[in-house]
């Protein structure tokens, strides 16, 4: 209540000041000029003037409407932000009219909701991902163990263990997918085919006579091998990790029908799948590598240009 009275008093003083100003100047100073719009008192006598900071001289007076606009500009939409005079650094005294308690409550609620919403949204996203992971884990368990056995195991297990173990299934699959063992094998084969003659006979494509490279090295030209590993694609890692249990089940059913246990069959199928896929990948990479190292750039002649045109046409590029 006390505050309300004070506010009322300030408003009374303000209006009396305004009347005083309009009816002739109390202090004999120069003609007032607004430091925003540069209009003087004589230009439009019926406006509301204010002296919002400790500046003197030409930046003493400003129109109420002009300073409001300037404050708006500085606050950039945050109507409770503090604004100071750019010259004298005095903080402007912004008085808001007293509003009812309902407005105060709405204000507080508005602020609270504004602050809480990002966290709630983040929680929803995280929760969705988590429950997807749990579901994927459960489906995978049933797929690998067989429907009935899988259900039995999950019913017997402690629910808390399940809530941790099930979502870790897709996580472990993805982490496992990040191990790029094919690159290691490829490196090993490339280094050792020259040294070990048996390997050279089994895998002729890994053995390349390196005379050309040696002459280049002798001339001081550094022939680095092109980068081994192609960049990791996140979507590719995700998809192939999540598809692995299904592929393992299919492979197991196709090739290891004689194994009685579902788990054993799927494990064997998974190992076979990874091995075959890895072998194909290594072969493909090595072929790409060979294609890259054995390319030639031709002299520009009509014949060679025609040759390239024919080669491109035949590969459909």
């Amino acid at each position: 209540m006390e505050e309300n009275e004070r506010v009322a008093q300030i408003s009374r003083e303000r209006s009396s000041l305004r009347n005083e100003n309009n009816s002739g100047r109390p202090d004999d100073e120069e003609v007032r000029q607004c430091w925003v719009c540069f209009a003087t008192e004589e230009d439009d006598p019926n406006t509301d003037w204010v002296q919002p900071c400790s500046c003197r001289g030409t930046t003493k007076w400003v129109h109420q409407t002009c300073i409001q606009r300037w404050v708006d500009e500085k606050q950039k939409g945050n109507s409770t932000g503090k604004v100071s005079c750019p010259q004298c650094n005095t903080e402007y005294l912004i008085l808001f009219p007293k509003m009812g308690s309902l407005v105060m409550i709405l204000d507080a609620a508005n602020n609270l909701i504004y602050r809480v919403c990002p966290f709630v949204a983040a929680a929803v996203v995280v929760g969705s991902v988590y429950w997807s992971a749990v579901t994927f884990g459960a489906v995978t368990v049933m797929q690998v163990m067989g429907f009935k056995e899988g259900m039995d195991i999950m019913e017997q297990a402690d629910p808390f263990v399940l809530l941790i173990a099930l979502p870790s299934v897709p996580v472990l699959l993805i982490l496992g997918k990040m191990v790029r063992w094919e690159d290691g094998v490829l490196q090993f084969l490339r280094r050792n085919t020259k040294k070990i003659p048996i390997l050279r006979q089994i895998l002729p494509s890994f053995y390349s006579p390196e005379e050309e490279n040696e002459t280049a090295v002798a001339r001081g030209i550094n022939i680095d091998q092109p980068p081994l590993s192609d960049p990791v694609s996140a979507t590719r890692v995700l998809c192939s990790a999540l598809v692995l249990p299904t592929a393992a089940t299919i492979m197991g059913n196709l090739f290891f029908e004689s194994v009685n246990s579902n788990l054993g069959r799927t494990l064997l199928g998974g190992i076979a799948f990874i091995a075959i896929k890895g072998a194909l990948k290594i072969y493909h990479k090595q072929q790409l590598f060979t294609r890259l190292t054995q390319r030639h750039i031709l002299d520009y002649t009509e014949d060679n240009a025609a040759l390239i045109r024919i080669a491109r046409g035949s590969t459909g590029q």
Binding site: T58, C66, P86, Q87
Partner: peptide, 11 residues
């Protein structure tokens, strides 16, 4: 020049 950016003042 700062006064042509954030230090601009209407005066």
């Amino acid at each position: 020049l700062d006064i042509l950016k954030d230090q601009w003042a209407a005066a």
